[in-house]
């Protein structure tokens, strides 16, 4: 029985660990959602490393069709071969290529399959995969062959909620929402990336980081990956702790929009003027 305990280079919350194990035990795909930069994609890499399994990644683009993941019938190649007579045209199997999903099904040992950013594809995409993910098998009409998974792959699906996923699809999955890590967990995460970071600097930097995140008005809140880049910049730049208390060096690493940088720089010490909640105006 597979039991995922985590891996060295990925810090995960107990709740997420449990959910991964629930999804493995129930043989259901795990959908991972969360703010950008909270390590959704890395989770699959960590599971593969932790369970010592091969990882197969299927990157979804806006033009990806469900069919692409199963198999491809290269008609043009066949036509070309028929025209110029090289190769055995009567054997259709030569022109069938398996897609990522097909490859995962055909694998001799169990694999971890990552379907990355499923929400990028068209709305119908997840629905087209319903049966294939349920039964873990599909049929190739050209050859009359049925590809069935020898070992059900562990399926991890990530979504940035660009689009809502269809209900029937969601019903068959396990869902996990990665919360933004709190300070404690964040310190652990930073420790994995920068093990030699000075404590005082880290504490001060984190304080500033969470302070920036508290602005309601930000168009794009800085995420974990930006924090790690920022800390790297601080270390490389040799910024003393005191400098962080006064101002925010390399703010461009954290905030990527001009309006956001203006907002933080204008604010001074408090959020007060910038966080007046707009919806709580209860006049009546």
């Amino acid at each position: 029985m597979n039991y995922f305990k985590g891996s060295e280079d990925y810090v995960l919350s107990p709740a997420l660990r449990d959910n991964v194990n629930v999804s493995i035990a129930l043989e259901r795909p795990l959908i991972v959602k969360g703010e950008p930069g909270t390590g959704k994609t890395l989770l699959a890499h960590s599971i593969a490393a932790g369970l010592r399994k091969r990882l197969i990644v299927w990157n979804i683009k806006s033009t990806t069709k469900a069919h692409d993941g199963l198999h491809l019938y290269d008609t043009v190649q066949r036509l070309n071969d028929a025209r110029f007579g090289d190769g055995d045209v009567s054997d259709i199997k030569r022109y069938i290529r398996l897609g990522t999903l097909g490859e995962a099904f055909k694998s001799e040992e169990q694999v971890v399959l990552l379907i990355d950013e499923i929400d990028k594809a068209e709305l119908e995409f997840p629905n087209d995969l319903l049966n294939e993910l349920d039964e873990m098998s599909f049929y190739i009409p050209e050859t009359g062959e049925t590809i069935k998974a020898k070992h059900r792959p562990i399926v991890i699906i990530t979504s940035n909620s660009e689009k809502e996923l269809p209900d029937p699809f969601l019903r068959r999955c396990i869902f996990h929402y990665i919360e933004f890590p709190d300070t404690e967990l964040m310190e652990e995460i930073v420790h994995v990336h920068h093990p030699k970071m000075e404590k005082g600097l880290l504490r001060e930097a984190l304080k500033r980081f969470y302070w920036i995140r508290e602005f309601d008005m930000l168009r794009k809140k800085p995420s974990t990956s930006e924090l790690i880049d920022w800390l790297q910049a601080l270390v490389v730049g040799g910024i003393p702790v005191k400098a962080i208390e006064k101002e925010i060096p390399f703010i461009g690493v954290l905030l990527k929009k001009k309006e956001d940088i203006d907002c933080v720089e204008k604010s001074g010490k408090s959020h007060y003027a910038f966080n007046t909640s707009m919806r709580t105006r209860d006049v009546y």
Binding site: D18, N19, V22, E164, L170, C173, F175, Y177
Partner: peptide, 18 residues
């Protein structure tokens, strides 16, 4: 506690319902 997380991951599929 683990039941809380497990049941949530199985029953609730959108964080707006958490």
């Amino acid at each position: 506690t683990r039941f809380y997380h497990m049941a949530r991951s199985i029953l609730v599929k959108n964080e707006i319902f958490f």
